[in-house]
């Protein structure tokens, strides 16, 4: 019998482990993301594939529309933080195309917008957790809309960031309960999807986006 972690997808295989899932101690945690036992579901034998494809929507047209009035309006409404992320991503995009000067220029613009970003009133970790919980309520609807409109790119990013967000919630909840769990171990972030991992060595592959472990980078402590 196999059990799948509802957060990161890790499979606990009773046969391989030699211990029945039910016999694991109550405080047992997922070795990848730290989720508790209660977050695991038994895996049906024919239930290891992806979810079925949604019903077909009309094929997108090949023409390129000019920027819509709606889009123009929205562009002005992007926050400084969103614009910073937009530009730092274009910086990465130029980097992989070997356009180093262009990358540097997008980096300058991203830095400008980051310097203009103001944090909302907050209470630290608790505020982040409540914002995470609010995001987690929005993913289902956003994914359904992306699937309906056959936007595979949006569906991909929503799927990944929902998983990385669930894992971040687990990590922050553990931190709130016992901050000492971060002592004498490493904190890693997947440089591609944002998956957070607490442990001595990063996993061989990112459980969210499947890049090899060398893309999962250690976060440096210190002042």
């Amino acid at each position: 019998m196999k059990y799948r972690c509802g957060v990161c997808g890790y499979i606990y295989d009773e046969e391989k482990e030699g211990v029945r899932f039910a016999d694991l101690p109550d405080d047992w945690q997922c070795p990848v993301c730290g989720e508790g036992k209660e977050g695991f579901e038994p895996v049906e034998e024919d239930d290891e594939g992806p979810a079925p494809a949604p019903a077909a929507a009309p094929a997108p047209t090949a023409s390129v529309p000019e920027i819509s009035a709606w889009e123009q309006e929205e562009l002005r409404e992007l926050s400084a933080g969103q614009l910073s992320a937009l530009c730092s991503n274009l910086q990465r995009g130029c980097g992989v195309q070997q356009l180093s000067r262009e990358a540097e220029l997008f980096g300058q613009i991203a830095g400008y917008f980051e310097s203009r970003t103001v944090a909302p009133d907050h209470d630290g970790v608790s505020t982040i957790l409540s914002m995470i919980n609010s995001d987690l309520m929005d993913y289902g609807d956003a994914k359904a809309t992306a699937a309906l409109m056959e936007d595979r790119g949006a569906l991909r990013v929503l799927t990944w960031s929902e998983k990385a967000t669930l894992i971040m919630r687990t990590v922050l909840e553990r931190y709130q309960k016992d901050p000492s769990f971060l002592e004498h171990t490493g904190v890693y972030v997947c440089d591609i999807c944002g998956f957070i991992y607490i442990g001595d060595d990063p996993p061989e592959f990112c459980p969210v986006c499947k890049v090899p472990g060398h893309m999962i980078l250690r976060i440096q402590g210190g002042a």
């Binding site: 991503n89 995009g93 990944w160 972030v189 440089d191 957070i196």
Partner: peptide, 21 residues
């Protein structure tokens, strides 16, 4: 500080990926 650095980095990466799509 360590965990907030990780969260900051992760949020940036997710934000980048979302907005690029």
């Amino acid at each position: 500080r360590l965990i907030m650095r990780a969260v900051r980095r992760s949020e940036r990466l997710m934000g980048e990926d979302l907005i690029r799509e």
